[in-house]
Design a protein around this nucleic acid. Structure first.
Lengths: 364, 364
DNA sequence: TGCGCCAAAGTGATCGATCACAATATGATG
DNA sequence: CATCATATTGTGATCGATCACTTTGGCGCA
């Protein structure tokens, strides 16, 4: 009753109750060959008679057979599944990164799956350990730092692991250094426009990229002989990278603050900063220049439009996924792309205002 | 170095070459019990001696054993994995929806994985079929329409399927009707402020929610005796739901257009519309009122801040995932939540301007 | 005709967990 | 102390695919 295979010439035509999915053996019986031959066909083996292939193809079609990927993985030890580990309370979900990574994975014949992990770093690490050792995936690409876990190739014991450079504390590949370096460019540009007094609204400390940008900012300010009026870190974790932190930071400045240039952690933060400036009567960029990060779409249409750093997230995603695939396949790791970030100047930056309070000392 | 198994008293200390992951049998041997007892422990079976449990726990710890989920799934026929199918060229990735869904899944003891599918509707349907029949997942929640596929419970043949109501062409559950109804509220509010001439910048036709909102808009305008000066649909698919379509729509209006109120497909579109208005000297809301949809975060900080419809995406995600889980477990489907959308009024809407051209006929 | 060789397909074992059922330990009772 | 009911653990089969090895078939050549 469970399986009603229609014999070659027996006329027991009752294809009505397929309570179970067909297996290789049933396809084999239907096609009049052995299960191993069907398996060969599924594997795409070369040495097969066209007639045999045709018979199997017909059987597959008639039974609507789809291979049980679980059983296949069990035997082969590989799943062709790559997981992307994504921390759950992530405000700006990197859609282009994911899309590009998915495309690379797909082209290489892998499935890409995103595992969303809520909870903090310990939960993420634990989940990563589980995933790596579960046999359910061939590789893991983590979009968050994984303290205690190292990048590694695929072994019989565990899946391969790659940490996205932006979140990697070990400054690997295009890592944090290349990531933040454009901040220096932004500071230099603003200095060229006459700005001398800067403020940095940073991202949360846990993020490698946030720390990197902060460091580059501080170095650039020091190198150019400018003044930093502080680095504001977001107090509430829940609003890290959100507009609120930018709003609060600017709203907290004294009305006669000498700050004329703000380097914000990202475009959301920049937007909040601009709003706060507007509400206290500071024109942007007349009184205050603001630079964001991300080149978010809304930044091109906001008023004023946002000066920002365009990040090639697609390239990042492609690179990270290629790296993972090379580790899974046991090939040589691919090289990091050169430069992914670009300063984009729009309406939110402009010349520094004249400074009535403290006249600029010209002593050259 | 990784694991230093301390034998009880046997001194055959050769833990040097763990080339393979340990299995239940090895754990059993290490603990001095049978493999079935270990399996019982893993299943969380009740009738077990505390002493036995302790021995097994120690063995698991010492060997760093993690069950092979693939093998388990093979035998049980279930994976405890639920997949969310996500179309790849998706502009506004529904982070809160995903986060809420992930939380619900996690609490019910499931893993949630997101499968990103690039390509169009046919590819998505094919991928869904594969996923449903691969045995790799217990259920699928699709974030895109799946023409030809019906919602269904889990069977031995295939996984359960749920289509997120926002993308479901069959108007199921809280479906498209409830979804778009707040548009009527927005139109009524604007009519109350004196607006008589409306424009709707719609989302792409393929989306059930876009069609629904458009229909509600047209009904409301007709019912209240107002004038609709057209419904603009985005021409280029690649910019569907993007600010560009809003920008173009407003930029294309004649300078003496009587339109004073715009209902935009979402906040991005609204932002583009406002930008275009600003560039041609139309004050918002002085000359033009604009309403968005989504309550995107930037809308609270943009200038002007955006009037919009707040959508409880978390509730949507929870609901969809609960529905899926009930179908997977074979329980009664859960009821749809009542009302998820709420009109939020901010700076981008205001009283209609005086109308010099065509004086308003008062004939009550 | 017979032999050997290569191509093509078949047979049985196997991956690591759980299921069904059998077997043994444990404790209460007369 | 024997006996039974119950609690706890052990033995062998099984899920559906692939791997390793064996067998059969077809053809050329002496």
């Amino acid at each position: 009753m469970t399986q009603q295979s229609e014999q070659a010439d027996g006329e027991s035509a009752a294809p009505a109750a397929p309570t179970r999915r067909p297996t290789v053996k049933q396809v084999a019986a239907h096609a009049g060959v052995s299960h191993q031959t069907v398996s060969r066909y599924l594997r795409g083996d070369q040495g097969m008679k066209p007639a045999t292939i045709a018979r199997i193809e017909q059987a597959v079609r008639e039974l609507d057979y789809r291979p049980d990927l679980v059983a296949r993985s069990m035997r082969t030890g590989r799943t062709r599944v790559l997981a992307v580990l994504l921390p759950s309370p992530v405000q700006a979900l990197p859609t282009p990164t994911l899309a590009a990574a998915a495309e690379v994975a797909h082209q290489a014949g892998y499935f890409m799956e995103v595992a969303v992990v809520d909870g903090g770093t310990p939960e993420r690490v634990e989940r990563a350990r589980d995933l790596l050792g579960s046999g359910r995936v061939d590789g893991v690409l983590s979009m968050g730092a994984l303290p205690g876990l190292e990048e590694r190739p695929r072994t019989p014991e565990a899946a391969a692991l790659v940490v996205h450079p932006q979140f990697d504390d070990r400054l690997r590949g295009l890592g944090a250094l290349a990531d933040g370096s454009v901040v220096a460019e932004a500071v230099e540009h603003l200095a060229g426009l006459g700005h001398r007094d800067f403020l940095h609204i940073a991202g949360p400390e846990e993020w490698a990229s946030a720390r990197s940008r902060r460091r580059v900012y501080e170095e650039a300010v020091a190198r150019l002989g400018l003044t930093s009026h502080g680095v504001v870190s977001p107090g509430a974790e829940w609003d890290a990278w959100g507009p609120r932190s930018g709003y609060d930071a600017v709203a907290a400045l004294p009305l006669d603050s000498p700050v004329t240039a703000v380097i914000a952690a990202n475009d959301n933060v920049a937007l909040g900063a601009i709003r706060a400036a507007g509400e206290r009567g500071w024109a942007v960029p007349g009184r205050l220049s603001v630079v964001g990060w991300d080149d978010a779409e809304f930044g091109r249409y906001a008023t004023p439009t946002l000066s920002t750093v365009a990040v090639d997230r697609s390239a990042q995603g492609r690179y990270a996924m290629r790296r993972l695939i090379s580790l899974v396949a046991g090939e040589e790791p691919v090289d990091a792309p050169e430069q992914l970030n670009r300063l984009v100047l729009r309406e939110s930056t402009g010349p520094a205002p004249a400074r009535p309070g403290r006249p600029r000392t010209i002593d050259t």
